[in-house]
Write a protein that binds this DNA or RNA. Structure first.
Length: 456
RNA sequence: GUGGUUGUAGCUCAGUUGGUUAGAGCGCCUGAUUGUGGUUCAGGAGGUCGUGGGUUCGAGACCCAUCUUCCACCCCA
């Protein structure tokens, strides 16, 4: 055998069964998004490198897949730079384009570029793959799908409410009722930083406290101090974050500890308003979690993350961003969005056996091929069957009966129709149920109605 | 990017301290049944042991490199 073909690390093929299941997730998300008035858009797999660089932090820049320039790309590079072998400095010389890292930044670019054709608030959803040069591990791929829903051009908190409802509905429809939806607000975090004298270290503070459930209070404290944050401030911040109790209780305690910190009060108000506006059934699933921070630093208000006790990482995340379009030259465009991690949801649903069994709705009726004349007649009847809204196919080759029957069996086809010389002469068709093994002859005229009745 | 782990037939895996011709189950193909799948029975095909070097009289087993898998860190869907 020649060298076995393979695919790049962290990417996957999907066989029909897996693909059907993935489609089920996409379709479910899509139907919910559309029912709330969101419209689909698509953007290219690649963006100009410049569009993406610097939007996700240094760590993010490292994880962006860069596309090598075409043509004689080395001839234009400065000799001195080449000799120094500084990869980072050379990237911009060698690569002008990159694969998209998420859907949010390309969306911001899209909004700025198409602002005159869009009416605001603009509600869009987008289901496309993104690429990250991360090391693969559990729930982590180099190519994966995000299902993004965003509304931009409105700072109403009703959007927060709506997105939480969307999350609730999508996961309910998928059979994942036992998710935990955690919310927080960057204004609260910013207030905590201010009250603790850590404003200058806001980014490091959020990255650290985001790990609280993983490495514990002591771990977070250690990390913050290691990163040079003043110990007194760290202690104060951790005390504030560690408040526990029901939502109202936590918010009240927090408000009490935050006198004079305007920013925090705005955040607390926002959280209160959102919680109050949620339908009861959704509110039950939403918990306020002051340790939720989220690494992406473009978030400015509400932040949302969805997790499941049987999965190590989040399956959905998002938040409000006040100025994402600003970096592309359009300011005053507040937006909020969430992103569902389709691949992680898939893995979780597979582990919990949540996919409906009838998903692979392939062919319902197959016609055995006995030869040219017979196959032509079968082809005709198959069209009739299809016209009666059933799926039908004619086996393309006049292969051995056994092979054709095995094909029908393997493919889970419910009924096999046989039109051989005898049937052709008598105007009948032998219909065999693959489930029961029963077989009966019926007239060709009655076939569609017969099958329709049986397949009900 | 850092640390660890994995790779033997299409799939899941055996393979003793290095020692003849590398095995099993499932799947696949053929036949019993040339117009009947799924069940049963009888046969059969399929592997340069991830790849490239090295140690050795001898390597699927040992060493090095590389790719891949999975896991943790970083970061994240």
């Amino acid at each position: 055998m020649a060298n076995k073909p393979s695919i790049p690390k962290g990417t996957r093929d999907f066989v029909p069964e897996q693909s059907s299941k993935r489609q089920f997730i996409f379709d479910t998300a899509r139907s919910v998004f559309q029912s709330f008035g969101y419209q689909p858009i698509e953007t290219p797999a690649m963006e100009n490198l410049e569009t993406l660089l610097g939007k996700y932090g240094d760590e993010g820049d490292r994880l962006i897949f860069k596309i090598l320039n075409n043509g004689d790309y080395l001839s234009k590079v400065d000799d001195e730079k080449l000799r120094q072998k500084d990869s980072n400095a050379l990237v911009k010389e060698l690569s002008d384009r990159a694969l998209r890292y998420d859907l949010t930044v390309p969306f911001a670019r899209f909004v700025v570029q198409n602002q005159n054709e869009l009416s605001f608030p603009f509600k869009r959803y987008q289901i496309q793959p993104v690429w990250r040069a991360d090391r693969p591990q559990k729930g982590r791929y180099r190519e994966f799908y995000q299902c993004d829903v965003d509304v931009i051009g409105s700072d109403s908190l009703l959007n927060e409410t709506e997105l939480l409802c969307i999350i609730d509905q999508v996961f309910s429809k998928l059979g994942l009722d036992d998710i935990s939806i955690r919310i927080n607000n960057r204004k609260i975090l910013s207030g905590i930083a201010e009250a603790s004298g850590l404003s200058a270290y806001f980014q490091q503070m959020t990255v650290a406290i985001d790990k609280l459930d993983k490495i514990g209070v002591d771990g977070v404290k250690e990390e913050m101090i290691r990163n040079g944050l003043p110990e007194a401030g760290v202690k104060k911040a951790l005390n504030l974050i560690n408040l526990t109790g029901d939502a109202e209780g936590v918010l009240n305690m927090l408000a009490g500890a935050m006198t004079g910190v305007e920013e925090a009060f705005r955040g607390i108000d926002e959280v209160r308003t959102v919680l109050k506006s949620l339908p009861e059934s959704t509110r039950e699933k939403v918990k306020i979690d002051l340790t939720l921070a989220r690494g992406l630093n473009y978030y400015t208000g509400a932040i949302i993350e969805v997790g499941h006790s049987e999965f190590p990482s989040s399956i959905c995340g998002g938040g409000r961003y006040d100025d994402l379009t600003g970096m592309f030259g359009l300011s005053d465009m507040s937006g909020i969005g969430i992103s569902l991690g389709a691949d992680r949801i898939y893995d979780l649903m597979e582990a919990k056996n949540l996919f409906p069994s009838n998903l692979d709705a392939g062919t319902q009726v197959m016609f055995v091929n006995f030869g040219q004349a017979e196959a032509l007649k079968s082809f005709e009847l198959a069209s009739e069957v299809r016209a009666s809204t059933m799926s039908a196919e004619v086996y393309p080759d006049s292969a051995k009966m056994k092979k054709q029957m095995k094909y029908a069996n393997d493919k889970g086809i419910s009924f096999v129709c046989m039109i051989g010389a005898e049937e052709l002469a008598s105007g009948t068709v032998a219909v065999k149920s693959m489930g029961t093994g029963e077989q009966e002859n019926i007239s060709m005229d009655a076939l569609s109605n017969f099958l329709k009745e049986k397949l009900k």
